[in-house]
């Protein structure tokens, strides 16, 4: 893998002072955080393995029917048909196992992104200084070229699923933080006032007034996080994340348009299914909203 990068890296000059301090930071983390990283690594590995195992458990036809039924309920008949045909195509292309791997990576990193991002978004609405710290961090996470996360992720966690999930979660977390924050801030002031006037504690206000009203916005953040996670997971095949990204990467390396296209089609099918299903879960969307 590293062979394909060495000519490019050799042609660049050494990193400047900014890059050196980033280097030093990663170095420091390597020297001092080994124990913590070990725990994180094991935890994420366990999550990814469990998800991969669980998703591979049902036979492909059962999986496809399950997705179609959920799609029928949440979105509609047309989408159910699409997901049935699409998943059948993935199976026919021989990419089923890789798709399941990709799905497991997406779900694991999205789950972690939501687990971290949602409380951060809520905290940002409670304390202005937290949001002042968060905002530039989110800008950085979102605009830093995705490949850049791969380097420290590999240095800290080696190659494989764990650094792939960590790089993905960093890249995919900003939307859920931002949209949770936005959704809660947008709850009409009179509803918040009504909640307070009836004696809500902060937690009751969040749970009974703010979240129900912010839910559509929060859910669109969840949807975006899942979609970003999928796009990043494909890129993490470069550090051994595995899944459909491998097919695309092999297509690039071998200049095999057909292979790359097959991998790409499978990614698109998975993307559409994840997008519509996660939108369908949002209140006010699809059939459930009526």
């Amino acid at each position: 893998m590293s062979g394909s990068f060495s000519p490019l890296i050799a042609s660049l000059e050494q990193a400047g002072p900014v890059g050196q301090s980033a280097d030093a930071a990663v170095e420091w983390l390597l020297n001092h955080g080994q124990g913590l990283f070990g725990v994180v690594q094991q935890g994420i590995q366990a999550l990814a393995s469990a998800l991969g195992w669980g998703l591979a458990l049902p036979a492909p036809w059962l999986f496809a029917v399950g997705v179609a039924l959920a799609g029928w309920h949440l979105v509609g008949g047309g989408f159910a048909l699409f997901s049935l045909l699409g998943l059948n195509l993935v199976l026919a292309l021989g990419l089923w196992d890789l798709m399941v791997d990709t799905l497991a990576l997406v779900l694991a990193s999205s789950f972690l992104a939501l687990l971290l991002g949602f409380p951060l978004g809520v905290l940002g609405t409670r304390q202005l200084w937290i949001w002042r710290l968060l905002r530039p961090a989110l800008d950085l996470m979102q605009t830093m070229p995705a490949f850049v996360y791969l380097i420290p992720a590999v240095m800290l966690f080696s190659t494989g699923a764990v650094p792939a999930i960590i790089a993905t979660l960093i890249f995919a977390m900003p939307p859920v933080v931002r949209l949770t924050h936005l959704g809660i801030r947008q709850v009409p002031a009179d509803l918040v006032e009504a909640g307070r006037s009836f004696g809500c504690t902060d937690l009751q206000l969040l749970w009974m007034v703010q979240l129900p009203n912010a839910l559509p916005t929060v859910m669109s953040g969840v949807n975006q996080t899942i979609m970003l996670a999928l796009s990043m997971v494909v890129i993490t095949s470069m550090i051994g994340g595995g899944g459909l990204g491998d097919v695309v990467l092999r297509g690039i390396q071998q200049l095999d348009v057909g292979l790359g296209f097959e991998g790409g089609i499978a990614v698109v099918i998975l993307a559409v299914i994840l997008d519509r299903l996660s939108q369908g879960l949002s209140p006010g969307h699809g059939r459930r909203g009526q």
């Binding site: 009409p188 009179d190 509803l191 006032e193 009504a194 006037s197 009836f198 007034v209 129900p212 009203n213 209140p283």
Partner: peptide, 13 residues
């Protein structure tokens, strides 16, 4: 207990 000009009812409830 308070009653509001804008009603301030919870729309999902």
């Amino acid at each position: 207990a308070m009653v509001f000009q804008s009603f301030a009812l919870f729309p999902q409830r």
